[in-house]
Design a protein around this nucleic acid. Structure first.
Lengths: 341, 341
DNA sequence: CCATAAAGTGGAACCGGTTCCACATCACCA
DNA sequence: TGGTGATGTGGAACCGGTTCCACTTTATGG
């Protein structure tokens, strides 16, 4: 592999001049530039990004941590971030968790990796770090965008929505269609944003005089199978409900499948609201009404904020994000007073 | 940020000794090791992976190219590769395409990036490079695992299945259930593996005396909407079929939704076979029978082969992969001779 | 025509690790 | 007692870029 010294020798110039031509920084004569470019072409020279990163103390990379590659949730998120970087010739380097074992350790190891790699900035999505963990990370790498989390003391670094209001929207959606008997399939209560979703849901119900204890609730572990199992359980126990809130779309799909398998029609017998509005929600039949959280917008905003920090640019960085309900066919007006036994 | 020279000074040893302690290579006295470790802890020293990569001429990274982050297809693939590297403390760095514009250029740029970053090896999944492109890449980085492609002259580098046999399995699945009138929703014919799937399907039909021209065929662009549109078209044109083959699962989902919306029952009126056996196929109702291609196995094998090349290890590297049919409820015995008009 | 600024250039020093070589120390044995 | 090997050690050189400084050449203006 040719080095810049080979290029300089071949072109009959000093390494400084060669470097200036190749990197496009600093004054060079037309003649020197031509000779260097010719040498580059002739030798097939490719600058080593590693060497460049070492001497310039910047890798030209944005590090991203996501808890899991599988599933439909993080793909579009990564796509959105990657897309923001396209224009400025930068790239992402992704560290991932595996969704098993000790997720906090996985996250910390992943971030360690990204920091050691001298990433210019970090974008982190994690449900398993606590506030103090985030503060420790931020001290080591202040160019830190925290997605989907509000960490006290790091307001500037956070790009988040209030999931309580997302849960509230789900409740309002069902109430507005006349529903009064509910069931909820929640995610694991170790996931902070799941707790908020469910809390927001119940807060609105409380405002309508419906107590938490009057609502059937099960943890579906954020999985299709978990959603299915929860419905099996509700049916077996004869739980009576016409409005179902699921804390993510996968569980909602599992729930709908199970309902249909037991002869319950969606939405005629049960109206279902999912959460996250992943692509999946457009694929079910009936299509799933889902609470849409602005994953891509939060990711893109965090990314732009980092770019501004790194290059002093002045990209537009929205910090207010809205949660909406993506209305589809799985929610309908209440027409009967409950499920058949 | 503390450097190894700071650590050496603090510990009262030379940089060589400090390096030997920290990297765990070479002989060091118990005493020196203790002093260096203390200094490391005291200064909060973290070795720069960049500097390490430069001097050791190896980044300790495996580069992976995938055409697209969105969708359910590549997540599990990346997960599987990442998981193989877990044991040996290595990581992946991912370059991605965007599924728009000139995909060949995107792919080449992505690989350029991975090579400049001095990745120890490359894993590439691409439908948009031609054989010669792959050979050029292989010359620059011989540690190249090509997934889902058989490139003449690079047999050792390729980890692939014969999609013709996958298409054949789909045909056999439907024929075995008595179906004789078919429709096909294909992917774009620029995607090499799509062409093979469809060819394999028709080859088996030909063996049963069914000509290509007797089968309705539409390009569904590998998308849910495309699958839906194809069925709309078939129904509008009054095409009569009881067996449907879709060249991927997303199109199959779109097709099933559209069929159901038009009052056609799956599988009573139409049996459907998808392709890829993504997680999606377990989420539909009825669940989708799908041709399962061993994405994860191919990725893992390619990854292990690279590890063997890089570290002289002797990991088991399967090179034969099997395509199977994942049987689910969307295929049933033919009970009537065609769709109602 | 000379003072001064601007443009262009070569090369040493640097980034922060690893590695190699020369050398010191000690144990062991003939 | 002196030779041999194993074990440890310090530090220079190196990886391949960038950057800064000292210097030369050319342009500008009084």
């Amino acid at each position: 592999m040719a080095t810049i010294r080979d290029v300089a020798r071949q072109a009959g110039v000093g390494v400084g001049t060669a470097s200036r031509v190749i990197s496009g920084r600093g004054p060079v004569s037309r003649d020197a530039a031509a000779r260097v470019n010719a040498a580059v072409a002739e030798l097939g020279f490719r600058p080593s990004e590693i060497a460049r990163a070492l001497s310039s103390m910047s890798a030209g990379l944005i590090g991203v941590y996501v808890p899991d590659f599988s599933g439909a949730f993080f793909g579009p998120f990564l796509h959105a971030i990657s897309n923001e970087l396209r224009a400025c010739q930068r790239r992402i380097v992704v560290a991932n968790g595996f969704g098993d074992g000790d997720e906090r350790t996985q996250t910390i190891n992943g971030l360690e990796f990204l920091i050691e790699r001298e990433c210019d900035g970090l974008i982190v999505f994690s449900n398993h770090l606590n506030d103090e963990d985030f503060r420790v990370i931020q001290r080591r790498q202040p160019r830190l965008a925290i997605i989907n989390r509000a960490v006290p003391g790091l307001e500037e670094n956070c790009f988040a929505v209030d999931h309580r209001s997302g849960g509230a929207l789900a409740a309002q959606a069902l109430l507005a269609h006349g529903h009064r008997r509910f069931a909820v399939i929640a995610g694991p209560d170790t996931a902070l944003d799941n707790v908020l979703r469910v809390d927001g849901f119940f807060a609105v119900l409380a405002g309508h005089g419906i107590a938490r204890d009057d609502v059937a609730l099960r943890d579906g572990g954020f999985s299709f199978a978990g959603g299915w199992a929860a419905i099996s359980d509700f049916i077996a126990r004869g739980v009576n409900f016409t409005g179902l809130f699921c804390a993510n779309d996968e569980m909602a799909m599992g729930a709908m499948s199970c309902l249909q398998e037991h002869g319950r029609r969606v939405p005629q017998d049960v109206s279902v609201v999912g959460y996250d509005n992943t692509v999946l929600s457009g694929y079910t039949s009936p299509r799933l009404t889902s609470v849409a959280i602005p994953m891509c917008a939060m990711g893109a905003s965090g990314c732009r904020w980092l770019l501004n920090q790194c290059f002093g640019t002045d990209l537009d960085v929205p910090t207010e994000f809205s949660i909406d309900v993506a209305w589809r066919a799985s929610v309908a007006e209440l027409t009967r007073d409950g499920l058949p036994a």
